[in-house]
């Protein structure tokens, strides 16, 4: 067990190292000069040189990387040159919770809508309902989320005036207002996943419903809902969780657009403005957090298997 855990941690560290070197290198290779961007159109050569030195950009690539890596590991993520704030506070304490909240809501929507829809489609296989849900799912996967976001804003926000069209309120501080603000962005980001989960649930459940233990349950005279929701759905939990873990990358990608459209101050917006402004430290921090998140979630997925499937539990 210990060996396994150490192996996992070692793997994680190697991945993080590769990610950090790649990001750092790519950023430096990308043309564009952060000092010029920060100074705008009016500046003197002296101002340019003084800022370059202040930012430490006059040193060699390796020195800059080593300096960054040593500080990063010690929890000193540096200062954002544009924002003039501590990157750890900005990225980890301010931006990350926003993105996590958005991701949490989208996933919740996706599961709460996608699973029942998929189950119903499987049960009512080859009916009009099934066909309708297939069309819905196909549209959902094909529809670009930013366009959907704008349409939702104009219909539900402006025309009907039901929901706020922008802004973030932390659900930890003001629960209902927070949720209220998350409904449109959450829906926007979740459409793709609702569709995906619906299709996946339907396909897996149809397969599961052919299994002998379902027939056995029916033969025991268990009520129909129990057969489907307990015996059936429990057995599709594993493929569902696996796919969701792997699709987390897609979800995080989606937050970039969703955050921009709904003006949420999360990691996506942070990364976009940092890349455009060549804020090396901020980009680096954003990518590292994303990588950690990805690794962390997939670790959780691994850990959840024994819970979902008793056969995988250690028998001692």
């Amino acid at each position: 067990m210990l060996v396994q855990a150490l192996g996992k941690i070692g793997q994680t560290l190697v991945v993080l190292f590769i990610v950090s070197v790649a990001t750092f290198g790519l950023l430096k290779l990308a043309p564009g000069d952060p000092v010029q961007i920060m100074l705008g159109s009016e500046y003197s050569q002296e101002a340019y040189e003084s800022l370059t030195a202040e930012m430490g950009l006059d040193r060699s690539f390796l020195v800059q990387y080593a300096d960054w890596a040593i500080n990063f590991v010690q929890g000193d993520w540096g200062t954002s040159f544009v924002a003039r704030t501590d990157i750890f506070t900005y990225g980890f304490k301010e931006a990350l919770p926003v993105t996590l909240t958005l991701a949490f809501f989208s996933l919740s929507f996706a599961i709460l809508i996608g699973v029942p829809l998929g189950v119903l489609s499987a049960v009512k296989k080859d009916t009009a309902f099934d066909a309708g849900s297939a069309v819905f799912a196909l549209t959902g996967t094909a529809f670009p989320s930013f366009l959907l976001g704008i349409l939702l804003i104009w219909f539900f926000g402006v025309r009907l005036g039901w929901f706020p069209v922008m802004g973030y309120v932390s659900p930890w501080e003001d629960f209902w207002t927070g949720i209220y603000h998350m409904i449109l962005p959450g829906l926007t980001l979740s459409t793709y996943f609702i569709a995906m989960i619906t299709r996946l649930t339907r396909a897996s459940l149809i397969e599961v419903l052919e299994e002998p233990y379902i027939a056995a349950a029916r033969a025991r005279g268990e009520p129909g809902w129990r057969v489907i929701w307990i015996h059936g759905v429990r057995n599709i939990a594993m493929p569902l969780v696996t796919i969701l873990g792997l699709q987390l990358g897609t979800l995080l990608q989606g937050t970039v657009l969703t955050e921009t459209v709904f003006n949420l101050p999360g990691i996506g917006q942070m990364l976009t403005s940092a890349v455009l402004g060549r804020e090396y430290g901020v980009v680096q921090a954003g990518v590292m957090m994303t990588a950690l998140l990805f690794i962390g979630v997939n670790l959780l997925v691994d850990l959840s298997y024994p819970i979902l499937d008793p056969r995988l539990r250690d028998r001692k």
Partner: peptide, 15 residues
């Protein structure tokens, strides 16, 4: 804000 069209929507909805 980054998106001018979202800003306009927010203005029209009174946000």
């Amino acid at each position: 804000m980054n998106e001018a069209s979202t800003a306009l929507a927010a203005l029209m909805s009174g946000q």
